[in-house]
Simulated scan of single mutants.
Amino acid sequence: MDDSRVTVLRYGHRPGRDDRMTTHVGLTARALGADRVVFPDNAGQAADTVRGVTDRFGGPFEVELRDDQRAFTRDWEGPVVHLTMYGERVQDVEREVREAHAEGPLLVVVGGEKVPFDFYEHADFNVGVTNQPHSEVAGLAVFLDRLFEGRELEREWADAERRVVPQETGKRVVDPDDADGGAE
């Protein structure tokens, strides 16, 4: 496995309650620089949605379903970051996390339900974004932006069927292979 890789593990998923949030964890991971998301095996709908977005808007990005999330985390070879409001402040540990990530692939654990204490113990870093209650999606977004120091915002996407054209107002989505950029 490429040592520069970042995998986001969504721990736990309560069908009917967490569907949208789990999907947004995957979409945020993809959009903000992670290479892969691992969902619980009961989050198939979220996995399908993220795969569909990747097909339309480009990749590479991997989506995986697993039923052995504790073992997956325990057996991870590389640094593990657990995002939790009880962790050390992201601004105090971001440099140390980047240095650890330079040594191997990084696993970022994002809880969807009560996270067992062994995740806290196994993590190399328990990291809090503001140490206040808020969305795990917001925490993941801030963490990834700090990890990549904003470089993820310049990412180019391969094999995209669609590309959003930034503009001040309105919405413009084009076929990236269209010679004139989809101009109408």
Rank of each mutant, 00 (worst) to 15 (best):
V53M: 05
M85K: 05
V90D: 14
A100L: 09
A138M: 12
Q91S: 11
Q69S: 11
E94Y: 11
R155E: 15
E121L: 08
L107F: 05
V174N: 03
D67I: 05
A47V: 09
E96V: 08
E168G: 08
R95Y: 10
G139L: 02
A123N: 06
G128C: 12
L83M: 07
E168M: 07
D175F: 00
G78E: 09
K114H: 10
A46V: 10
A123S: 09
E113K: 07
A46S: 14
G104N: 06
R146E: 15
V81R: 00
E149Q: 14
L140S: 06
A141I: 01
M85E: 08
D41S: 13
R89I: 01
H82Q: 13
V110W: 02
A46K: 08
V53K: 02
G59N: 01
H101P: 05
E136T: 09
K171S: 10
T49S: 08
G139W: 11
P60K: 04
E156C: 02
V93G: 11
N42I: 01
D68I: 03
E113M: 09
G112N: 09
P176L: 03
V63W: 05
Y86M: 02
R172T: 08
V80Q: 00
G104Q: 03
R163T: 03
P105N: 04
H82L: 11
R89H: 01
Q91T: 14
E99G: 00
F119D: 09
D67G: 15
R56V: 14
